[in-house]
């Protein structure tokens, strides 16, 4: 495809925005990358009995993710059920982090937390779905940026211990504060998973335009994704989880558990 123009100036004039877009985009790629390679630390918490048909799960996930859809749909077939479970566990993890944020006294007046609470309280009156959709997408977009950074740290591309936190966006530090019981891998996966939720929400918006009844809510989104993944019979018996994890473990530099020191710098509130 021919390139008709190149703009090298905008990045200088509006660099922050571009970085946001770029890291969000990276998050999408990272989402795919994580799924393709698996995240080892989740091995102990996998509950494979909840999940079932690999084929069904793959078929349902491909159109939701669209990362880039043609490639995912063709290559995702070999991912394996355990990675799909990891993805779902990530959704659960995000819920835990989000709950801690919402219950925090320190952040109760934060505008983003208020926004989340407003979203959760929305009823189904006319017009509110649209507002919710916008709010959700905003949160997803912010989450993606965090996810990209978290992944880079967890993956060793950026060394957490040498990071100057005065330069790190506060939102990232804040999230870490509320996720300090978890390791970076899990935080990164959780936020990467938001991409799936965002895509799903967007699809539902499109459905709404086509007069298909719309139902929104973060829990609804995650539940619907879960439903897509969980349909069908029991897991095929040929999947040997422990062998799979052992194999993956031999190749794991990136996903070893880490003891994460928290920065001493006080945070000025969550910036989701």
């Amino acid at each position: 495809m021919k390139i008709t123009s190149v703009d090298t100036q905008t990045k200088k004039e509006n660099f922050k925005k571009i970085v946001s877009i770029a890291t969000s985009g990276l998050g999408l790629g990272v989402t795919y990358y994580l799924i393709k390679n698996g995240i080892l630390n989740y091995g102990q918490v996998l509950d494979l009995n909840k999940f079932d048909s690999v084929t069904t799960a793959m078929q349902n996930m491909a159109p939701i993710m669209k990362v880039p859809v043609s490639l995912v749909s063709s290559s995702i077939k070999n991912i394996g059920l355990d990675k799909m479970v990891l993805l779902m566990k990530s959704g659960e993890l995000f819920g835990k982090i989000g709950q801690a944020v919402l219950e925090s006294d320190k952040l109760k007046d934060n505008r983003h937390v208020k926004k989340i609470k407003d979203v959760l309280k929305l009823n189904k009156e006319d017009g509110e779905e649209k507002r919710y959709s916008g709010a959700l997408r905003g949160l997803v977009s912010s989450g993606l940026s965090i996810g990209a950074r978290a992944f880079l740290m967890a993956n060793g591309v950026v060394d957490y211990n040498t990071m100057d936190f005065s330069k790190v966006p506060h939102r990232f530090v804040s999230v870490l504060e509320h996720a300090k019981e978890l390791d970076l891998n899990r935080v990164s996966i959780a936020f990467s998973t938001l991409k799936v939720g965002g895509r799903f929400a967007l699809d539902r918006s499109i459905e709404k335009d086509n007069n298909v009844p719309l139902k929104f809510g973060m829990s609804d989104v995650l539940r619907d994704i879960s439903k897509n993944i969980k349909s069908g019979p029991q897991i095929p018996p040929y999947i040997n989880v422990m062998d799979t994890l052992a194999t993956l473990g031999n190749n794991s530099r990136a996903y070893a558990p880490r003891n994460i020191p928290m920065p001493e710098k006080p945070n000025d509130g969550l910036e989701l």
């Binding site: 922050k16 970085v19 890291t23 790629g29 880079l152 993956n155 591309v157």
Partner: peptide, 17 residues
């Protein structure tokens, strides 16, 4: 792509709303 990402970009970039 991930390997080649320069961490300077991350450190200098704050997301906007």
């Amino acid at each position: 792509f991930i390997d080649s990402l320069n961490e300077d970009y991350l450190e200098s970039g704050e997301e906007d709303e």
